[in-house]
Design a protein around this nucleic acid. Structure first.
Lengths: 184, 184
DNA sequence: TATAACATGTAACTAGTTACATGATTGG
DNA sequence: CCAATCATGTAACTAGTTACATGTTATA
């Protein structure tokens, strides 16, 4: 469902292909919403059936043919409706790390500590990514594209969320590591 | 996949029914892993086919019959193997709030602010829940059940994660609200 | 007298993953 | 010469949601 609105969201900027949409997602929304190439193609097809978008086949001689999708009036109305609608319930979480920890009372102290330290390394790496790559990607794209100042602020807010999330995760891991050292 | 291990995890404590497993989940893991009753029944059936658990039907006259599941040796080995296996990649996130915000550059400033304030209220409520209900549920259960001191520490660590997560969310919303007031 | 709790299940559906197929061109 | 990039798609599958069916008993 949400993937449809994500694709519509990008198509409000300009018409494009399923292949390009995947690439755009990978360098922008992938930290908070991702999809496989195959799912994107299937979803675009469904959206065209619903009349939210239309496609035309562009024949290329040196490269494979491209199917270019454009948003329709109905499509524009649908994104607008979606954006104006407030979120009234929190999304339920699924956290594999918490699930495992919950059942780990009989595990070896050292095994558990090693696992948590590994988790911390992963979150540290991700934090650095938000602070470097993600930050410059947003800045460069905004600088190269006219009339994107407002967009850039919102894009950076989503990046900032990632930064805070990874810091929080690391803090929790630190606390949990200390707790296990003392109590297991 | 993970639901199977969650159910196995609970079945290591004692044999029980699909109905009870749902209730147990609702008061314990539901903040970081949830499932519908119908999915639990289907999953238990598959697990029995795989030989991870076995069931027997208990006939009751005043109440509907119950199907009681017990974990097998294979089941015990499977949870142990799952728990000892470290998580080596971060779980990709899906955050609806970020997705909407990413595409909200053309929205009315006031609409956006109202939505973010609503989000903050929801996170505030959830934070209080972690600090009150969840906290006392863990304490009471641990006090009433022998040999659960170690478990209780781990259960509280998962609760603490929720607390930190909601605080972080609120901080991010505060920052984002200020940013929008200044830049939109 | 209604409704919540007890208790288990199936069917139809949506979302998402994995694997496969095709085939030219470009860069190291 | 090999791998990556460009480019689109289908098929089979797993996970999860929604809706339906059944029927008693305790509680408000």
């Amino acid at each position: 469902m949400s993937l449809q609105f994500l694709l519509l969201g990008f198509l409000t900027y300009r018409p494009t292909t399923g292949y390009e949409l995947k690439q755009t997602m990978d360098v922008s929304t992938s930290n908070f919403w991702h999809a496989k190439q195959s799912q994107i193609y299937v979803t675009l097809k469904k959206m065209e059936e619903k009349g939210l978008i239309v496609s035309e086949l562009e024949e290329q001689d040196t490269r494979p043919n491209r199917r270019i999708y454009s948003i329709t009036e109905n499509g524009v109305a649908a994104v607008q409706q979606w954006l104006s609608q407030p979120i009234t319930v929190l999304q339920p979480k699924k956290e594999l790390t918490l699930l495992k920890l919950f059942f780990s009372a009989k595990q070896e102290k050292q095994t558990l500590l090693t696992q948590l330290h590994l988790q911390k390394d992963l979150h540290k790496q991700k934090l650095v990514q938000y602070q470097t790559i993600t930050k410059t990607v947003i800045q460069r794209y905004a600088a190269a594209t006219p009339n994107t100042e407002t967009d850039a602020h919102l894009w950076d807010a989503t990046r900032r969320y990632g930064e805070l999330f990874e810091q929080m995760s690391m803090q929790w891991l630190d606390e949990t590591i200390v707790m296990i050292e003392e109590n297991l």
